[in-house]
Amino acid sequence: MKNLVWLASYPRSGNTWFRLFLSSILSGNSRKDLNQIEVDLLSNSRRMFDELAGITSSELANDEINNLKPAVFQLLSCESTDHQYLKTHDRFFLNSAGYPVFPQEYSFGCVYIIRNPLDVAVSNAHYFSKPVDEVIAIMNNRGYALNVSIDCLYPLLEEWIGDWSGHATSWLNSGVRVHVIRYEDMISFPVETFSKALKFLKIKFTEERVSIALSETSFETIKKSEEQFGFKEKLQSCNSFFRQGKAGGWKTFLTELQIRKIAGDHREVMERFGYLEPGF
């Protein structure tokens, strides 16, 4: 059954905001505690993998885990007739057995959230406490992965993120139905942008309900909730998951050289999504 919905994005692109909004719409009410939301499945949950695969992932090599993931997602799909929403920062890729890790035949579709890489660089630098030049290099690294268990075991499975442009194009060319949302449009045209996503997901809604959900998941509200209850997805080393919730912060943060480096690395995809003026 095609009921898996991938909520995919490069890290720090608005994925969590979208999930909070979707949770509010699906539950019909707000959750004051961000840790109790409806849409909380993570595609790289070690616990979910171990349960559905029936094996301890910490005793498998990463390629063996990726070879089992299609079966795990198939089992997840078969357990319910409803949509199963899964957040992922993985790029779309084939495993070493040659099969898509995210099986098309069980996928309803993908909501791909994209954000100006200039802002992505700034946000990731703050979140991972890394120099922005290092983040810019990571954003151009095809092999980059998160949660790589070398000397210790992470509660989450490894995610192959790769480079920023390749991340976006991998999902766009995946063969899964994809609806793209620009983070900047989530901020500037929220009702229209979120409503279109709900239509894509075939979720019934009213404009009034969308407005309520947006109010319940406004940046101020979720920031306050994080201060009160914490947020389980936050890195321990980072002060807060939700930082500014704005677009365009790069203008006062990045140097001319850094801007040109990002534009040079990601020109094609940036132009495609309106993040670069032609000829920049």
Partner: peptide, 17 residues
């Protein structure tokens, strides 16, 4: 069945790549 196992009655099958 699960990703690496199948069971039927009193038989349990496990396959590790």
């Amino acid at each position: 069945l699960g990703g690496v196992y199948q069971l039927q009655g009193r038989q349990f099958f496990l396959r590790i790549e």
